[in-house]
Computed example of a mutant assay.
Amino acid sequence: MSNGYFQITLPENEPVKGYLPGSPERAALKAELDRQLANPIEVPMIIGGKEIRSGNKAKMICPHDHQKVLGEYYIAGEAELLRAIEAAEAAKAEWENMSWEHRATIFLKAADLLTGKYRAKLAAACMLGQSKNPYQAEIDVICELADFLRFNPYYVQEIYKQQPNNSAGVWNRVEYRALDGFVAAITPFNFTSIGGNLPTAPAMVGNTVLWKPSSTAVLSNYYFMQILIEAGLPAGVINFVPCKGVDFGKVVVSHPKMAGFHFTGSTAVFNGIWNQVGANIDKYVTYPRLVGETGGKDFIFVHESADIEALTCAIVLGAFEYQGQKC
């Protein structure tokens, strides 16, 4: 048994590359864009660490050019979703009992793979599958996702360090454990970084997860799932199950062992999930924790000292950059 004391230092934000003319990152990205366009792929489900293919498939296309097909992905049905739940439950005990620093190393390794040898691959997939320009893809699927993978283990450490005060003759200690069941994660089309964060954040603290990626962001999400596996994520900890929302709701959200729901998407969908959980509340093993981020644009309050030209630029970008599909 290890008795070392391990500490993660406060990370630094991943530097943003500029993709300027003549730069090596620009050349690598252009080559990868050409490669992915010329080589459509087949994306399986990943359940219990195994690639699963069903009889139901859908195409992945470029939103900006519907004639360009990036490949096809397999769609999970009721049988595959139930299998994923079984895989999550089977992996739970060993994963939860793994030392937190060992879990953390997997995600820290994933960040290094993402920002290293797979940087061009993930950026190109985000550009082609979600219609982002090089700068938008860089700050999303590379820098922000890498920051999630590095800062979240640090924050896990800080949470675990929080302990109650002691009294005379008493040493009070708190141990943190995972939820009593699995976590369901539904992720959005507009940010691959959120796609990667919603399943990995609960996994870092010992939970096992069913991950339903957006049907219009499968490609980059799948490549990130491959990175997690290469980084050492054990089978069944995160199960990658592209599927129809109605099937996920019927099979997964209503399952007695769903202990957490992690979501970014529309307000209407989250309201529907909340209603569904309420209608099934007497069936659950525990009260599910619901975390949802939903859509909307903010008011802008401007101080009289503001730089009007910079403000105008920021307002236009906030409203219309990436077709207005940003938070």
Results as ranks from 00 to 15, higher is better:
210 L>Y: 07
130 Q>C: 12
262 H>S: 14
194 I>C: 10
270 F>A: 14
38 A>Q: 10
142 I>H: 03
89 E>G: 03
183 V>K: 02
83 R>N: 13
32 E>C: 03
147 D>F: 11
269 V>P: 04
294 T>K: 05
113 L>T: 04
290 L>F: 05
150 R>G: 05
280 N>S: 13
109 K>A: 09
179 L>W: 02
170 V>Y: 08
296 G>H: 09
58 A>E: 15
56 N>V: 15
79 A>K: 15
308 I>E: 03
310 A>I: 02
301 F>C: 05
48 G>S: 09
243 C>R: 02
195 G>T: 13
69 V>Y: 04
154 Y>M: 05
152 N>D: 14
157 Q>C: 12
229 I>L: 12
87 A>Q: 05
323 Q>K: 14
136 Q>T: 06
175 E>N: 14
35 R>A: 14
15 P>Q: 01
102 H>C: 12
213 P>R: 04
262 H>T: 06
235 A>I: 10
264 T>E: 11
289 R>E: 12
111 A>C: 06
271 N>G: 15
58 A>I: 01
196 G>T: 00
322 Y>P: 00
324 G>P: 10
87 A>G: 02
106 I>D: 00
167 S>T: 10
143 C>V: 09
311 L>A: 05
234 P>Q: 02
165 N>M: 14
48 G>R: 01
41 I>N: 04
87 A>H: 01
124 A>F: 01
186 I>E: 00
4 G>P: 00
121 K>I: 13
299 F>P: 04
139 I>G: 02
45 M>A: 14
81 L>M: 12
265 G>V: 11
177 R>C: 15
219 L>S: 02
260 G>S: 03
88 A>C: 15
297 K>D: 08
12 E>R: 14
294 T>Q: 03
295 G>M: 11
327 C>E: 11
186 I>Y: 07
188 P>Y: 12
11 P>S: 12
138 E>W: 04
51 E>W: 07
137 A>N: 10
281 I>C: 11
216 T>M: 11
159 I>W: 07
193 S>G: 13
58 A>S: 15
308 I>Q: 08
272 G>M: 06
298 D>N: 09
86 E>A: 15
297 K>Y: 05
184 A>S: 14
197 N>T: 15
188 P>L: 13
42 E>K: 14
265 G>A: 13
326 K>Y: 08
70 L>F: 04
131 S>C: 10
93 A>M: 11
196 G>M: 02
175 E>V: 12
212 K>N: 07
42 E>S: 14
55 G>W: 09
171 W>L: 15
174 V>C: 06
288 P>D: 00
127 M>C: 07
259 A>R: 00
95 W>K: 05
105 T>R: 13
186 I>T: 07
322 Y>D: 04
20 L>A: 10
35 R>E: 11
181 G>W: 06
270 F>H: 06
237 V>E: 10
120 A>L: 01
258 M>F: 07
47 I>T: 05
120 A>V: 11
67 Q>W: 08
314 A>Q: 02
155 Y>C: 08
64 H>I: 07
272 G>C: 08
252 V>W: 00
10 L>G: 01
44 P>A: 01
294 T>Y: 06
267 T>M: 01
114 L>E: 02
